[in-house]
């Protein structure tokens, strides 16, 4: 092997890049928008539903697959699992006062509502909102049961 091809290992404490969905604010926005768009006037959603919607939203490449399932065009069940980052983000959102946890449901606060409106106004997360408008309401209890097998 030639010396030019030698690879030298370097150990560094340089800051590392983080995927957008792992940024707390991004995920808080996703939680808030999910509740705002899908719950309508009720302004709250089951925590399971929130979890699943966020799972779907951060996987933009599989939206087509989710859409087919939710619209009942396929019986193939897409993979949905526990995402601790979403739990953290929910807790974050509660601490920040954007949502409330009550009776196992996540309620949107006024502050949360304001955040949603800022997003809408500044054309942020438009794709996500469009996805939620299109299929968000199709995520029924049965669909959740099908997706999770009743585990979540």
């Amino acid at each position: 092997m030639q010396d030019d091809n030698k690879i030298k290992a370097v150990i560094s404490d340089k800051a590392y890049p983080v995927p957008i969905e792992m940024r707390p604010l991004w995920r808080i926005c996703l939680i808030v928008t999910s509740i705002a768009v899908v719950s309508g006037d009720k302004k709250f959603l089951d925590s399971k539903k929130v979890n699943i919607l966020v799972w779907m939203l951060i996987r933009k490449k599989r939206w087509e697959e989710y859409e087919k399932y939710l619209l009942g065009r396929t019986n193939d069940i897409p993979l949905v699992s526990v995402d601790t980052a979403t739990y953290k983000a929910v807790e974050f959102s509660i601490a920040k006062g954007f949502v409330l946890l009550k009776d196992g449901r996540v309620h949107l606060t006024d502050s949360g509502q304001d955040l949603h409106e800022i997003l809408v106004k500044n054309e942020i997360m438009q794709d996500e909102m469009s996805f939620l408008h299109q299929v968000g309401k199709k995520l029924t209890g049965n669909k959740i049961k099908g997706l999770t097998g009743g585990l979540l």
Partner: peptide, 15 residues
């Protein structure tokens, strides 16, 4: 988008 949010979200910037 996130940066824009941060830049426009002055009302709730603390949050």
């Amino acid at each position: 988008q996130l940066r824009r949010l941060k830049s426009v979200g002055s009302d709730i910037s603390a949050d």
